Simulated assay, not measured.
Amino acid sequence: MAHEVRMTLRLPEDLRDRLRAHAKSERRSLNSELVYMLEVGLRAAGVDASPPGGDTAGSAPA
């Protein structure tokens, strides 16, 4: 990613624990797993056509 931002995310503790366990099973940090899951989800919803982890800096809105 070319530019990163920091944000606060509030979520239930049990969800955080499940996400953390899944990230560990995928050998990723919790942050990396969340970014990956969000990118995949957006792509599946047709919101974002860029590949997970891809740089969208070169794409301009139509």
Rank of each mutant, 00 (worst) to 15 (best):
A23F: 06
R28C: 03
A45P: 00
E39G: 00
A44E: 15
S25W: 02
K24V: 09
S50F: 11
A23I: 06
Y36K: 04
L15C: 03
D48R: 14
P52M: 02
D48M: 09
G58Y: 04
M37Q: 15
E33H: 10
V40H: 02
V47W: 11
R6E: 09
R16M: 07
M37D: 03
D55M: 09
M1K: 05
K24E: 13
S29I: 08
G46S: 07
V47S: 07
A49Q: 09
Y36V: 05
P12Q: 12
A49T: 11
S32R: 13
L30P: 01
D14T: 12
M37A: 15
D14W: 05
V5E: 06
Y36G: 00
G58R: 11
A57H: 11
A57D: 12
H3G: 02
M37L: 15
L42S: 01
L34G: 01
L9T: 07
S25C: 02
T56R: 14
L11Q: 10
R43W: 03
S32H: 08
E39H: 04
L42C: 07
R28N: 04
P61A: 15
S59K: 04
S25P: 00
E13R: 12
R6I: 12
R10E: 08
M1Q: 07
L38Y: 03
P61C: 06
G41D: 07
S29L: 08
P51S: 02
N31G: 01
L9R: 04
H3Q: 12
G58C: 02
V40N: 01
R18K: 14
G46V: 07
L42A: 12
A49C: 04
D14F: 03
H3A: 10
M1G: 10
D55T: 05
P61T: 12
A2N: 13
L19W: 08
R27A: 12
N31K: 04
A21D: 10
S50R: 14
T56Q: 09
R20W: 00
T8S: 14
E13P: 01
S25G: 06
E39P: 00
G58W: 08
A45G: 04
A45I: 02
S29N: 08
P51H: 00
D17A: 14
R6K: 15
R20M: 02
P52I: 02
A57L: 13
G54P: 01
V40M: 09
V47L: 15
M1N: 07
S25L: 08
R16E: 10
R27D: 13
G46E: 03
M37T: 13
E33K: 02
E33L: 07
D14S: 11
S50C: 06
L15I: 14
G53V: 07
D17K: 07
G53W: 03
E4L: 13
M37V: 12
P51N: 02
E26N: 05
G46C: 05
D14C: 00
P61K: 07
L15V: 15
D14Y: 03
E39D: 11
E39Y: 00
D17V: 08
P61M: 10
N31Q: 06
P61F: 11
R18N: 10
L34W: 01
S25A: 14
